[in-house]
């Protein structure tokens, strides 16, 4: 994935033929779906945190790929382009639904002693619960949900999808320094939210 293809590599317009898609083109679309759909869905799911929106978002992303199929060079890497579509769609979704937008909990609160981050007591942090995978996943997803969308996008692309900083900068079209600082902030906040799980993990390493 060492490429920085920001735009979908476009084929020459001259070779575009009018009419419906040929069986080869349909097969190409199938191949793209086969290769990327799981990742796209996963990113969308971690972004929105629920199945219905994740489904809509990734379906819409592939609809766009379908429409643009003839302008996409066969065999060209589509990661950056596709993931940018997903992140843009996600941002659009938030704009369309301002009421569903949660107050961002990671924005520092003003106090007389300066800015502080809110503390969140985790209601179910018994040792048994911490060890339960399902419970852990839910807690992580909830913690992700409290991040602002900017921070969430960066942390999902980096720590869940494993993109390099430069790739994230290309996908989100932000400077490299912005990726670094957002990731730093996002991890600090997640650390606070997931403190009991992190302690358990550290103990696991030490033990």
């Amino acid at each position: 994935m060492g490429r920085l293809a920001v735009m979908a590599p476009m084929a020459q317009p001259g070779i575009i033929r009018p009419g419906q898609y040929t069986p080869e083109e349909v097969a190409r679309f199938e191949a793209i779906v086969h290769r990327y759909a799981r990742h796209v869905y996963n990113i969308a799911y971690r972004m929105v945190g629920n199945e219905a929106d994740a489904k809509d978002l990734s379906q819409e992303a592939f609809l766009r790929v379908y429409r643009a199929l003839r302008r996409v060079e066969p065999g060209a890497p589509l990661e950056s382009w596709l993931y940018r579509i997903v992140s843009n769609l996600y941002i659009d979704l938030l704009r369309k639904r301002p009421r569903a937008r949660m107050e961002s909990l990671d924005v520092p609160t003003e106090t007389p002693r300066g800015e502080v981050l809110r503390e969140f007591p985790d209601i179910a942090s018994s040792p048994e619960a911490i060890l339960e995978r399902e419970h852990l996943d839910g807690a992580i997803q909830r913690a992700l949900g409290t991040l602002s969308e900017e921070l969430r996008l960066v942390v999902v692309l980096s720590d869940i999808e494993g993109f390099a900083y430069e790739e994230i900068a290309a996908i989100l079209r932000v400077p490299l320094g912005t990726v670094k600082s957002r990731l730093h902030r996002a991890r600090q906040i997640l650390q606070q939210r997931l403190a009991p799980y992190i302690e358990a993990r550290k103990r696991g390493w030490e033990g």
């Binding site: 759909a37 990734s58 720590d159 494993g162 991890r187 650390q191 992190i198």
Partner: peptide, 15 residues
Amino acid sequence: ATKALLGELPVAEPP
């Protein structure tokens, strides 16, 4: 540990 926890999240399986 934070990065590890996120990285171990299962891949969400599409319906």
